[in-house]
Simulated scan of single mutants.
Amino acid sequence: MSNDTPRRDLHQRTGLLLVAVLLVAANLRLGVTSLGALLDQVQDATGMPAAMASSLTSLPVLCFALIGATGMTLARRVGVHRGIGLALVLLTAGLVVRVLDGPALLLVGTFVTCAGIALANVLLPAVVKEHFPDRVGSVTGAYSAVLSGGAALGAAAAVPAAAATGSWRGGLVVWALLALAALLAWAPFCQAQDHGSGGARGPMLWRSPVAWAVTLLFAMQGVAAYVVMSWLPTIYIDAGFSHGEAGLLLAVSILVGVPVFFCAPSLATRLRTQGHLIAVLSLLMAAGFLGLWLAPLGGAWLWAVLLGVGGGIFPVVLTLFSLRTADAAGTAALSSMGQSVGYLLAAPGPMVIGLLRDGTGSWSVPLAVLTVSAVVQIAAGYVAGRPVIVGTARP
Rank of each mutant, 00 (worst) to 15 (best):
S208A: 05
G68S: 09
L370V: 09
M204Q: 15
F262Q: 01
L178S: 02
G94I: 12
T165K: 02
L320Q: 05
S364T: 15
S364D: 14
A192T: 07
S208Q: 04
P348L: 04
G150S: 00
A329C: 05
S167E: 09
G137H: 02
A155V: 13
L344M: 03
I378T: 05
S144C: 13
M220K: 04
I67K: 12
A152S: 08
V256Q: 07
S34K: 05
Q221N: 11
A185F: 06
A53F: 04
A295P: 10
A145N: 03
L249P: 08
L367C: 10
G291F: 04
T70H: 05
S54N: 02
L74V: 10
Q191P: 10
L248N: 14
A239W: 10
L292E: 00
L318A: 07
R77K: 11
A87E: 09
S138A: 10
V260F: 09
I278G: 04
F262W: 13
C114K: 12
L180M: 15
I254N: 12
P395V: 11
N121V: 10
L205A: 06
A156V: 13
V61E: 01
S138P: 09
M52Y: 12
V214L: 02
A45H: 05
G109K: 11
F262T: 01
V228E: 11
A287L: 06
E130N: 13
A333K: 03
C190E: 15
G83Y: 02
A181E: 11
F132N: 10
A264Y: 03
A156C: 12
A65W: 00
L153M: 05
T73Q: 13
L17T: 03
Q193D: 13
G311D: 06
Q41W: 09
R324L: 08
S2K: 15
V365M: 15
D40Q: 15
R76Y: 06
L370E: 08
P296R: 01
A164I: 03
V258M: 06
V96A: 11
L95N: 09
S335I: 02
I237R: 15
G338A: 08
R82I: 07
L249R: 10
A152G: 09
R324K: 06
T92H: 11
S253C: 12
N121P: 14
L59K: 00
A26R: 00
V252P: 13
A126I: 02
G36N: 14
G94N: 12
C263P: 07
V376H: 12
L292G: 00
I237Q: 11
A333R: 01
V369G: 10
L216D: 05
S242T: 15
V223F: 07
S55R: 00
S322P: 02
Q377V: 07
G15Y: 12
S282M: 00
L62Y: 04
V316M: 07
G149Y: 03
L277D: 01
P103A: 14
L320P: 03
A246G: 02
A51F: 14
N3S: 13
Q339D: 04
A179F: 09
S167Y: 03
T110A: 14
P348H: 07
G79W: 08
F321H: 03
M229T: 14
A200R: 02
V376D: 08
L334M: 03
I237V: 13
G299P: 02
G137L: 01
T331M: 13
V365E: 09
L147Y: 15
V388E: 15
G170T: 06
F289R: 01
L90D: 14
G275D: 07
T325L: 07
I254Y: 07
G68M: 06
